[in-house]
Each structure stands twice: as structure tokens, then as C-alpha cells.
């Protein structure tokens, strides 16, 4: 079965919000250790898709497997790191308290997170702001802190919903280098984005439009298939009205 060989598998997933269908027969598989990009215009269903993978939301029909087990499953939650599209932080608390809280929720011991917290803060370049209250953070700093929080517990699967919004190009590059390192060490990463240059950095890419997955492959393949010079053109091509199916 497919769900044996791939880290994240979706089979014929449909999702309704009331009458409205926001995901239509989504089939998707993310190999172990890959950085997988989910690309598509606003409102196409990216967040809905990743929430189902993260086990927060459930599909109306269809199956979702993560690490070979059906989602949602409480025991899998410890293996998944999730970074939401909007920063979910306790504004009143300093960054350190935010991190410690989620570390303990993930069952980390004090000695473990005492060591780990400076590491992840270093990674997102926030070491100097560890004890600042989050309410005093800028938008980009909050984004980075959210990222740090999602990798705190060494997840095997990392699901990032538009992680680099509001982060400057230099830092974005550093973050991508980190993602590559993690993927090299076997972490499977799913990133949603609508930034093209970011999509190009992914090992594999899926394009989404109005709740459907319209194309899957490496960035290079997608480009070649349509002969487009850049992924940006591919995006416009696949996203265009002429290619609904």
C-alpha cells in the first residue's frame, strides 16, 4: 500500500463546511524526508488540507495517513509539529514561557527543554529576545517564534502553514537552510505557500486550486510539462481558468 511507503498520504479526501465543499477528491502523498510544497491561490484550501494532516480537523470523507497511521490520532500528535497560519502565542507571556509551556505539553522534561529552547531560538535568530513578552514582538519575530515552537519537540513530521510570511529574505534563506538540514536528518516537511521562489526550493510540489489538487511533481517537472520558464508561469498556467481539470 501507498501508506506504507510515504509519510503523509491522503486518499480521496473531501471536506465540506456546511453546504460548501472546500476540498474535492484530494489525493496526495509525501515521501519520507521530503520537503513538500503546497502551492495555490488564497482560499483554495491549503490551510484546510494541512489542518486535516495535523489532526486538528477531520475530512468529511476519505482517508489520511501520517507515518502509516490513520489521522486523527492522539498518539501521533507528538510526532507532528504544526505551525498555524496565524501566530498562536500567549501575548502576555515572555517567549521563554510560551516555549516552556508547549514543551511541557509535549511531555518534555525540564532538563530537555532547558537545553532545547536556546537551540531553537538560536535557529530563528531570537536568542536575545527570549525573555521579552510576546506582545513586544514584531510580526516577523512572532512568526519566527511560532516556527521555533513547532520544532521544539523534534517532530518527525513538520507541517508549516505559510511559515515565512513577514520574514526578510536573508532570514528566510537561513530558515530554509535549517529546513534542508532537518529534511536531511529524515524529517518530513510540508510547507504551504503562495510565494513562488519558495515553491522552487521544495523537493516536490503540489498545486491546488478551488479545492482540487491540479498538479503534482518536482518543481522542475511541473515547469517542463508546460514549458514555462519559471514556476511563476507554471502557477499562472495551472491556476488559469482554462485548466480547471
Amino acid at each position: 500500500m501507498k501508506n506504507e511507503t510515504d509519510c503523509i498520504v491522503m486518499n480521496q479526501v473531501n471536506k465540506f463546511y456546511g453546504e460548501k465543499q472546500v476540498l474535492i477528491n484530494v489525493d496526495l502523498s509525501v515521501p519520507y524526508g521530503a520537503i513538500y510544497g503546497l502551492l495555490g491561490p488564497s482560499g483554495c484550501g491549503k490551510t484546510t488540507t494541512v489542518k486535516i494532516m495535523a489532526g486538528i480537523s477531520e475530512a468529511t470523507s476519505g482517508e489520511t495517513y501520517v507515518l502509516g497511521k490513520p489521522m486523527p490520532q492522539l498518539s501521533l500528535m507528538n510526532e507532528i509539529g504544526y505551525m498555524a497560519q496565524s501566530d498562536a502565542l500567549y501575548m502576555m507571556l515572555p517567549a521563554a514561557d510560551n516555549l516552556e509551556f508547549f514543551a511541557s505539553i509535549y511531555g518534555m522534561k525540564k532538563e530537555q527543554y532547558r537545553k532545547r529552547i536556546p537551540e531553537v531560538m538560536e535557529l530563528v535568530n531570537l536568542s536575545d529576545d527570549l525573555y521579552k513578552p510576546v506582545s513586544a514582538y514584531s510580526g516577523g519575530m512572532k512568526r519566527r517564534l511560532s516556527l521555533a515552537m513547532s520544532i521544539l519537540h523534534h517532530p518527525k513530521v513538520l507541517i508549516l502553514d505559510e511559515p515565512t510570511v513577514g520574514i526578510d529574505p536573508l532570514l528566510r534563506k537561513e530558515i530554509w537552510n535549517e529546513l534542508y538540514k532537518m529534511s536531511d536528518s529524515g524529517v518530513t516537511i510540508l510547507v504551504t505557500t503562495h510565494v513562488m521562489d519558495e515553491a522552487e526550493k521544495c523537493h516536490q510540489l503540489a498545486m491546488m486550486r478551488q479545492g482540487r489538487l491540479i498538479a503534482q511533481g518536482t518543481p522542475h517537472e511541473l515547469q517542463r510539462r508546460i514549458g514555462a520558464a519559471s514556476i511563476e508561469e507554471a502557477f499562472i498556467y495551472y491556476g488559469g481558468d482554462g485548466h480547471a481539470d
Binding site: I56, A88, Y90, F102, I105, Y106, G107
Partner: peptide, 14 residues
């Protein structure tokens, strides 16, 4: 409203 509940629900907390 701040999304921390969703973040919490993405963890193994019951």
C-alpha cells in the same frame, strides 16, 4: 480567538 486553542489541539493534550 488568538488561535492558541488550535495550537493546543495540535498537541497530544486531551
Amino acid at each position: 480567538t488568538t488561535g492558541t486553542l488550535e495550537k493546543l489541539l495540535s498537541t497530544p493534550i486531551k
